[in-house]
Amino acid sequence: MFGCSEEPAIKGKDGKKQLIVGFSQIGAESSWRTAETESIRSEAKARNIELKFSDAQQKQENQIKALNAFIAQGVDAIILAPVVETGWEPVLRNAKKRNIPVILVDRGVKVSDESLYTTLVGTDFVLEGRLAAEWVVEKTGGKANIVELEGTPGSSAAIDRQKGFSEIIAKHPNLKVIQSQTGEFTRAKGKEVMEAFLKSSTNKIDLVFAHNDDMALGAIQAIEEAGQKPGEDIIIISIDGVKGAFEAMVAGKLNCTVECNPLLGPVAFDAVERAVAGETVEKRIMIEDKVFDQSVAKELIGGRKY
């Protein structure tokens, strides 16, 4: 009969040949985030996995509520894209007590016991920051006044991208970050912050480093409205590699984007299935990043999936 102890673990807790997975997503603050959600949803459908989806609307408390609900419902596994790094231990301990594996996607957490989550599937945010800074060094000859549009405060993406960028910039004394403020990973906030930078800066702004493409696209709007030419008067580099960034590069308004691939569904569900089956899963599963500038944008834009 269904549900007997001989049934393989990969079959759902109700005995049916279908896994039930809870997915707590941060929100829909960017086209990157939307692409990630679609990747996970479509992969669940392709594998006949029942996906319970929760949009946290940028709030950790909503994610914690969703996770506790998933646990109470007895899901087989949880996929979590954490909005910030800290504050997860109680709910993750709750999941561990119920033997529910938690797969982190794209962002990490800081916990005292790393066994509280199974694996992190994502890219190397520190490396992305370094790659952006290396491009800046080459593009500017090591001399520029830089403004930085930071991501969500407390998020691993914002912390690590800034860390990687700063590591390289610090080696070049004529590269100076003259202003830095959060744009919360959104286009609207990126535009608002860039407007403030343009009005308040006493120094000429040579370059914008945005922690994601959406903030860069907002900054482009602000620069244009201020009567300057983005991509010419002010150099702009961002991170994510979404199609909108490629369109901006083709138009000459964005100079470079560092890819952060959001199509994590296949790799995430590979990890889910291995964890539910009792197999060992490596603690970090990395997705490779690439750097794209205007010279290749037109050639590659047709093949972008996000």
Rank of each mutant, 00 (worst) to 15 (best):
D233I: 08
V281A: 12
G15D: 06
R33P: 04
G142I: 01
Q60M: 14
Q221H: 05
I159D: 13
A132D: 04
K243M: 01
G3P: 01
A72K: 05
Q58P: 03
A46K: 08
T118A: 06
D160L: 14
I234W: 07
A275K: 03
G87W: 13
A219P: 15
D124Q: 05
R93P: 01
E184Q: 15
R304Y: 09
E247R: 02
E148K: 13
K290T: 13
V296N: 04
E288H: 07
M194P: 08
L19W: 11
G154T: 03
D76A: 04
R41Q: 10
I239Y: 02
V102K: 00
E138I: 06
R98E: 15
E232W: 07
K191P: 03
T118H: 11
I287E: 11
R187P: 13
C256W: 00
S166K: 12
A95V: 03
P173L: 08
F185L: 09
G151F: 07
I236R: 11
I235K: 14
K110Q: 12
E259L: 09
Q58W: 14
R93Y: 01
E29L: 14
E50D: 11
A132V: 06
I169P: 11
K305G: 02
S180G: 09
E288M: 06
T123K: 06
L51R: 07
A226K: 07
G22H: 03
P101Y: 08
I79E: 02
K243Q: 13
I220T: 09
V177F: 12
G302Y: 05
K139R: 15
I287C: 01
T280H: 12
L300K: 14
G22T: 05
Q57T: 11
G122N: 03
K199S: 00
I178P: 06
S39H: 07
C260H: 12
K139C: 10
S24A: 14
R98Q: 14
S112K: 08
S5V: 11
E134N: 14
D206S: 05
N99M: 09
I10W: 14
G227Y: 06
L19Q: 09
V272I: 10
E61A: 15
D214T: 05
A245N: 07
S30A: 15
E184R: 13
I40M: 13
Q60D: 13
